[in-house]
């Protein structure tokens, strides 16, 4: 079956703009807030939002890092393919900060669970919020819910949500693939 287009380029940018504004509403000047994008694909959304925030509020100092969760995953030695790590780039301490974890798709919640563990290597945050581009509802295996959502998608097993980034494939796009 041909993939269904869920979000086109225009909507994609509108969603990022809206998410950035929602963050400003809750975090004001970001003096005690940091953004952590989850490797490998959450970092694109995190940096896109960082850029938008700097555009809206040029004077604020936004801290944004990349967090790799590979060594904290719970499926090491349980999958066919080996888990290869990506780079973690965090040049600040998150002790007593309000952390915004960012990922592209929230599905079972297991990646976010690993992210919460991995994050603790950098200190004890005051609070943690979750921001995702796509929330695949009704497929959670852990009690994890996002605070900021780009688009909620009701999908069934066998379907796959594919988020494409301008930085990787040249276009911003979200598609739903169905294999029957």
């Amino acid at each position: 079956m041909r993939p269904t287009k869920l979000i086109d380029e225009v909507q994609f940018q509108l969603i990022i703009d809206r998410l950035a504004h929602e963050l400003i509403e809750n975090h004001r000047d970001f003096s005690n807030s940091v953004i952590l994008g989850l490797q490998p694909r959450g970092i694109y959304l995190a940096h896109r939002i960082e850029a938008k925030l700097k555009e809206i509020a040029p004077k604020t100092d936004i801290r944004c890092g990349d967090l790799d969760v590979t060594f904290f995953r719970d499926d090491f030695r349980r999958r066919e393919k080996p888990l290869n790590p990506n780079a973690t780039k965090i040049d600040f301490i998150i002790e007593d900060q309000r952390v915004i974890l960012v990922d592209d798709v929230l599905y079972t919640g297991r990646t976010i669970r690993s992210g919460l563990d991995a994050m603790l290597s950098y200190g004890r945050p005051r609070s943690v919020e979750l921001l995702v581009m796509i929330d695949r509802r009704f497929s959670r295996e852990l009690p994890i819910e996002p605070k900021y959502v780009g688009r909620a998608v009701d999908s069934i097993e066998g379907q796959r949500v594919n988020v494409q980034w301008k930085e990787v494939t040249g276009k911003d796009l979200v598609e739903l693939h169905t294999t029957l």
Binding site: D68, T70, T88, I93, Y122
Partner: peptide, 18 residues
């Protein structure tokens, strides 16, 4: 792989649960 572990051992908390 060692590049990433070198980053790990230079963090305040140097342990991972793999």
């Amino acid at each position: 792989t060692a590049d990433e572990f070198k980053a790990v051992i230079n963090r305040p908390i140097k342990k991972v649960p793999s």
